[in-house]
Every structure is written in C-alpha cells, then in structure tokens.
Design a protein around this nucleic acid. Structure first.
Length: 209
DNA sequence: CGCCAGGGCCATA
DNA sequence: TATGGCCATGGC
C-alpha cells in the first residue's frame, strides 16, 4: 500500500485551495526572492524586496554595478546579508545576460549551482517559478511529509526529486502548486508529533490512498 | 529566553 | 555520503 502522490496533491489542493505561487512581478524578482527566502520567513523577505524596489535596484543591470555591501544594506531584514548579497549580484548577472531559452534544464541548473549561495533547492525554485521548467522543488518539509505518510523517501536531494518526478506528470503548473501546498501545509502542521496522526492528513494516512 | 523561518557552505570523518 | 557549526534577522 502506498500513498498516491497525485491523490495527495488533490487532497492538499481541496484542503488549502490554490496558493498561486510565486508572488512576484517578474522572473528576476522571483529569483531574488528565492535567494532571500533561504531559511528566512517570507515577511522578512518582503521587506527586503520592498527596499530593493523603492531604491529602484530591483533591476539586473543596476545590481551588477553597485557594491556588494550596498546590496547587503538593502536586504538586512532577510538576514545572511554577506552571502545573499553576493548571490543576488551573480543572479543579476545571469539575468542581465538574458536567459537562453534554448538551453535545456540540466545545463541551466548547473550554471545556477555554480553560483556560490545557490544550492539545490534555490536552483530548482528558480528553474520552476522563474523559468517555468517542470522541476519538482524538494525541501525538508517534502521529505518529512512523505516520511510521516509512511513513504520511505530516498536519501539525497537529487534522488528524492527524481523519485517524485517519476511518479507525477511532468507539468510545470502541477509542480508549482504542489511545492506551494506542501509549504502551506507545514504552516498548520504539528511540529511535535513524529507521525501525522495529529494533523489534518490523518484521513490520508488511515485511508492510505 | 528559546525556537524557527519557503537553505547553503565548509570542515570533518 | 553524512553530520555539525555557522551564517543574521524578526515574529512569536
């Protein structure tokens, strides 16, 4: 008996409704937000993005030419300013050069991963939400949710991403909403219980859909 | 006061 | 491969 990941998606969608991620005006803003939100609450990220916008620095060509320390001052609210400011300047260069739509996803991913401060999850978030590539964004909540549902997820980020993508239709919109729903579910999730018997997914566990 | 948030890097074994 | 310390800010 194994949980059907598509059924799980439909359950989350019915329960929480459409999350409509990513909240941003442009693909570049998505990428900046993906860096800023690393281990950081979204409210703190919003302040940083708003400061970048007010200072008219939310533009790749401008960010390239201002000192890293100055970028850091604009994003203090999001924390980790030393590493995030460098990563933001590099992703600005990436966007300033113009996204090459002919490159396949694997090539772009390796380019993103070459940027210091961008790891697996951030690279995939940029691929999915900024560049519209069908990539399942894995985070620690994804792994924990699967574990609590009785699935034994493969260890390692890439292995789990492949595990999920092999079991789901390779649809960009599905992946966008799925990751958003998992994050949404986590906000009202029991943090103490090691099983899912205390959260709203109890029915899912019991029915073993 | 401590915990955690839409992670990632680096040293170490 | 897989841990642990560290990075920084703000809400609760």
């Amino acid at each position: 008996m194994e949980v059907d990941l598509l059924e799980l998606y439909n359950y989350l969608l019915r329960h929480y409704g459409n999350q409509s991620w990513w909240p941003a005006d442009t693909p570049f803003e998505v990428a900046v937000g993906a860096i800023l939100t690393q281990n950081t609450s979204w409210t703190n990220v919003e302040r940083a993005i708003e400061r970048l916008r007010e200072s008219e620095m939310l533009v790749p060509e401008k960010l390239i030419n201002i000192p890293t320390e100055e970028v850091g001052q604009l994003i203090v609210s999001a924390g980790f300013r030393n590493s995030k400011s460098k990563a933001i300047k590099e992703i600005a260069r990436f966007f300033a050069e113009g996204p090459d739509h002919m490159k396949n996803t694997t090539v772009i991913r390796s380019e993103l991963l070459n940027i210091k401060g961008i790891g697996n999850e951030t690279a995939d978030a940029i691929l999915l939400y900024a560049l519209d590539r069908p990539v399942f964004v894995v985070d620690k909540y994804t792994r924990r949710l699967l574990t609590r549902l009785g699935i034994n997820p493969p260890s390692g980020y890439r292995a789990l991403r492949k595990f999920l993508e092999d079991k789901l239709p390779k649809k960009t919109e599905l992946y966008k909403e799925y990751h958003a729903l998992i994050v949404r579910h986590n906000k009202s999730f029991c943090r103490s219980s090691p099983s899912c018997s205390d959260c709203c997914l109890e029915q899912v566990c019991l029915q073993n859909i």
